[in-house]
């Protein structure tokens, strides 16, 4: 069994060595496409996480009319909670708000009457629903008609657009690079088959099993893909570290989330290997490398 395994592995590495240039090109392109796809995916999930974290900061402030009673406040709070896209509604009584402000800004507050109305802090679960929620709150009877709803509409829209753009960019550029990688692996395998036609012929003459004949080609594709995935994971880690270092100098900006390096390496090299096997199988199928 080990003899067969060593033979197949030996054949695989011989094949890789023979077409070293093309193998490098294929591996490089797989690495580039996985780097881009992986990078975009990480950026997307990073922004999503950031946006989720920001939704607390991108809270809405809803100011109520003067003279609103507690039952009206409760009814309004319940109504807002029932809107789709709303995660949390907190009532901020005008006294509490003034007390807090007076503590934070005692010199300004001194001698003044409480100017704050009763208000709600509304936290969204879905940034895209911001406009809709805002419009519905504004229509409620207790809401102050004159600027009763305040929130960072533009910032929220910007984040939503950034996420959409990343999706499109990932799909287009990543897809293009993945196609180029497929063509390169496909051609690498075809060239390998051609350069190893005597070996293949000998194997068929002496009745080598299908696994012995075909596995080296599939392994070759898998190795090219897996190496591409490893390189991509390394590059992503490097990029992550570089950006992280750069961000340290801007204390105003939040730090990058940590990179799950082990999971990323496994995922990318696994995806690359699978992709390589698929491309190799396609090349073998195209060559109609039948046992004839």
């Amino acid at each position: 069994m080990f003899d067969r395994l060593f033979f197949v592995l030996g054949e695989t590495f011989t094949a890789l060595r023979r077409n070293l240039g093309l193998a490098f090109a294929a591996t490089g392109t797989v690495a580039a496409s996985l780097y881009l796809l992986g990078g975009l995916f990480l950026a997307y999930s990073g922004i999503s996480r950031y946006a989720d974290g920001l939704s607390g900061r991108f809270e809405m402030r809803v100011f109520l009319k003067d003279g609103i009673t507690v039952p009206q406040i409760k009814w309004t709070a319940e109504k807002i909670r029932s809107f789709e896209g709303v995660r949390q509604v907190n009532w901020i009584p005008r006294d509490k708000a003034w007390e807090k402000y007076s503590k934070e800004n005692p010199e300004i507050a001194r001698g003044l009457e409480n100017p704050f109305p009763d208000s709600f802090k509304v936290i969204l679960s879905d940034l895209k629903k911001g406009d809709e929620v805002s419009e519905r709150i504004a229509k409620l009877p207790a809401t102050d008609p004159d600027g009763g709803v305040q929130y960072l509409r533009d910032e929220q829209n910007l984040i939503a657009q950034a996420k959409d753009a990343l999706k499109v960019l990932g799909g287009m550029v990543g897809g293009l690079l993945a196609t180029i990688a497929a063509v390169l692996i496909f051609n690498a395998i075809r060239l390998t088959v051609l350069s190893r036609r005597i070996e293949i012929r000998i194997m068929k003459l002496v009745g080598a099993s299908y696994a012995t004949v075909y596995t080296p080609f599939l392994l070759e594709g898998a190795i090219q893909g897996a190496l591409g995935g490893l390189v991509a994971a390394g590059l992503l880690a490097l990029t992550h570290r570089t950006i992280g270092e750069a961000l340290k100098s801007f204390s105003a900006l939040s730090q990058l989330p940590s990179l799950p390096y082990n999971d990323l390496t496994l995922a990318l090299s696994g995806a690359g290997a699978f992709y390589g096997v698929v491309c190799s199988a396609a090349a073998l199928y195209r060559l109609q490398l039948r046992y004839r």
Partner: peptide
């Protein structure tokens, strides 16, 4: 003939045997 040019005579035979599933 279909011989492997980079392998010696005995290696050509050994290669064929390995391909056919023979042990070392």
């Amino acid at each position: 003939f279909a011989l492997l040019p980079r392998k010696k005579v005995w290696e050509n035979l050994a290669y064929a045997m390995r391909a056919a599933g023979a042990t070392r």
